[in-house]
Write a protein that binds this DNA or RNA. Structure first.
Lengths: 245, 245
DNA sequence: TCAATGTTTCTCACATTTCGGGAATGAGCT
DNA sequence: AGCTCATTCCCGAAATGTGAGAAACATTGA
């Protein structure tokens, strides 16, 4: 292990379940000597990637919040999409949650959300949380538009997606330009998601609305599907005009 | 340049003003050959610290959003403070903005904010934005509680804070346990900030309420000052109980 | 089709840096 | 003082990054 890897290996130790580490535990877990870990930790602290929690314990540092702000201010998908996201949620006119999510390696990550007034639930797609690519409308709207080679690779690796039925379902999603699913990730909610495509490489995302099954009838879902698709088109326009700067 | 520095130097190039870079520009700016920059960029992309924007341009990657979530979920100050922050804003009962900010190197950084319904303004203390330590109630509440040695160093380096009057003002803030200022950062708003202190090292923060000058009279400011101080106490309690796990 | 251009990766010899084991320092506690 | 634990320091050996240029690859235009 060398270079960036050593630093990343340390950072990746920190999780929701274990958010503080001692140098000893890190060294043991990574299988490298303490002196090396101390050096690594010192470097990371110097750049605020880590900070001291208390008595020999370390935790993630605030530099991530700083870079997160930079992303919020400059990410084209966010700048083009966050207003649209709010508009679509408002236009839905029901207690729902709106999500703007993107492909992130072999997962889907929410980068912005909007909650309509009155919504008493929340989605598992929290901002910054990697989610599986093969479940949920939000994810499948993205998966359906992966290039064939990559699509196959992802599907092969996922036990719950290897069926032929799944492939044909996703083909239909691709054709329709919208994906609707019910209770796949969170019970009792319906997800309606439209893909966001763009010429520029690496932009593959979705705009989705999540609402309680109890209030969702066919007409409402159809209306919301149209709204998300229209929103997705608007975001695509915003992306292509901003990239032309 | 070696080790982490090389990587950080690249990441620090990205700013609000220039959010996309070509390898050429990076190499020129950093004064290192292109081949080296290519290697560095490739490594950073592999870990999602950078991503390709378009045609030979690179931008910050989404890994920061992922780590930002981890921080939101695990940072003791945030977990102890975000509920209190909302409570204090609600208790204020006026269109105001609440801020939870912390010391970050020689700056102050907002880590959480809450806007009361009806507030038509926003604070310059955006989440993740480093702010000067010597201006604004939010910052001065923190500065006033820096250890003497560090306090002096910061004050010396800041042209607008070198006066004796400033030192005595901050002494008074320290005594009072609250800092109130008007229009120092944003015109036409009043800031009311209470320091958050804790035994654990590195925890130095403030809880503040920002409200328009037009609605702020002495009685209201006094009431809000008491509320922020009470909130700060509650957060301190939350911190000490959680660290005892 | 071929040349031209720009981006990205690769190669290789060399110097620099990191690595890791252990010793040294330092702070806190009894 | 003496003990324990956290952290830094030291140094030779070994691995890694460095940088200049060439090569691969993609795109564009003639």
């Amino acid at each position: 292990m060398a270079g960036l890897d050593r630093y990343i290996a340390v950072l990746r130790l920190f999780s929701q379940g274990q958010s503080e580490w001692t140098v000893n535990d890190m060294a043991e877990r990574l299988g490298v000597p303490q002196s090396t870990v101390y050096r690594t930790v010192r470097d990371l602290m110097g750049e605020n990637f880590l900070e001291m929690a208390s008595e020999a314990r370390y935790r993630l540092g605030s530099v991530f919040i700083e870079f997160d702000r930079l992303l919020r201010l400059t990410d084209p998908l966010l700048t083009a999409g966050s207003q649209v996201l709010q508009d679509v949620v408002a236009a839905a006119g029901v207690p729902c949650v709106g999500l703007l999510c993107r492909l992130y390696n072999d997962t889907v990550m929410c980068i912005a959300d909007a909650t309509a007034p009155g919504a008493t639930f929340s989605s598992s797609y929290e901002r910054g949380r990697p989610m599986p690519l093969t479940m949920g409308a939000t994810s499948k709207a993205i998966l359906a538009h992966l290039p064939a080679r990559r699509f196959s690779r992802v599907v092969e690796q996922s036990p719950d997606a290897r069926s032929q039925a799944f492939r044909t379902e996703l083909m239909a999603v691709r054709k329709a330009g919208v994906c609707i699913s019910s209770g796949e990730i969170d019970a009792d909610v319906v997800g309606v998601a439209a893909p966001i495509l763009s010429k520029s490489p690496g932009v593959l995302a979705s705009l989705s609305i999540v609402l309680p099954q109890t209030i969702a009838d066919d007409a409402m879902v159809a209306r919301i599907a149209a709204a998300t698709m229209a929103g997705a088109r608007r975001i695509e326009e915003g992306l292509s005009s901003s990239s032309g700067l």
